[in-house]
Design a protein around this nucleic acid. Sequence first.
DNA 1: CACATTCCGTAACGATTGCTACACATGTAA
DNA 2: TTACATGTGTAGCAATCGTTACGGAATGTG
Lengths: 202, 202
Amino acid sequence: MDRVNTDKPRGRPRSFDRGRALERAMHVFWRQGYEATSVSDLTRAMGINPPSLYAAFGDKEQLYLEALGRYQQRRVESMAKWFDEEPTAKAAVRRLLTEAATELARAGAPRGSMLVLSAMQCSSDALQAKLAERRASVRAILKARIDRGLHEGELARGIDTDALVDFYSAVFQGMSLQARAGASRKRLLATAALAMRAWPGG
Amino acid sequence: MDRVNTDKPRGRPRSFDRGRALERAMHVFWRQGYEATSVSDLTRAMGINPPSLYAAFGDKEQLYLEALGRYQQRRVESMAKWFDEEPTAKAAVRRLLTEAATELARAGAPRGSMLVLSAMQCSSDALQAKLAERRASVRAILKARIDRGLHEGELARGIDTDALVDFYSAVFQGMSLQARAGASRKRLLATAALAMRAWPGG
DNA sequence: CACATTCCGTAACGATTGCTACACATGTAA
DNA sequence: TTACATGTGTAGCAATCGTTACGGAATGTG
């Protein structure tokens, strides 16, 4: 529903960069979570006043969902690339976890995955339901890659790929929390390496 | 500094059961987190009015810490028992994860570990620091049990027990988040079983 | 120029937040 | 009974919450 400005815009033009403002909002939400971020935190970080925020983004919840959407889009693109580059499901999962170790502990960005952290940083039931959908969509990408390994014969028939997805998702979520608590990239890599020992068939 | 009431109490006696009220507060905090729980949520659940809450527990933060302390104490006691009953470090870790699968998905209680969830449900830096200490103390118990296995020759010399502790902590944290998201006991058990495949030496 | 349209900044709305002043109730001690 | 000490309930504090009404500023169109 976003008009992409092919028509000539009428009225006073917006005096700030919408994308840049969204990026700033994303970082604030990522660092503090939905509930703990106030609209005045947002307006301060975005460099605009409340009416501009509401005109451009709807309300706090819509802004959060759009910010999370931007975060999720990038993560999904990265995952798709990694999964495509790696020849096997096992290598793909290893790649996911090792890249995660670097991303989750990156300096200059909030620690941990915004998507994982969002799970508990908000209490609205309506919002929680939407967040669950988004997490499910990321989970589905991982499951698709592992199932592909199954169909290609990399994994023995009868392997419970849902259980594998649960396990590696849990490891990723745990790494996310540990990154949040200050764990170094090196320690996250060690956890990722141990997790790969659980892959079927060694 | 709590006087244990061996002396005769003077003045009007408290008209509610402090322990029962604390228990109710614990459940509310556990379900909703620190930030998302308002004092009026607490007073409603505890069946008392704000002045009674403040007189008996200090303020919202102290009440949270005391409620979390009660939760933590029980968890620590359980862990100590399990770790003492199991003959090896590997069996102890397996026991921890399988018991966790049951506890985290127990009906009638909030899903997930209150201690794990607390990591991101509050934004005060001062509070975060105290929560980090508590998580560290639980982590230390696990590390002590694994190190015991090392000293008893169960684990090969040179094994990085810190890495093992990181890994199994991450798995526990991930299971906690998945329990929160609705994962069944059965699926949590499957994750626990996969995690045990990463134990050194199979 | 006027006009319509859209955005910006100020300023404030009602609701809720964590917390407490105050008057009264209820207990022990003299 | 009187004095003291403590808890309870009402009622409301200042601050902040998410949100918006309003008037003026900036643009395109006639």
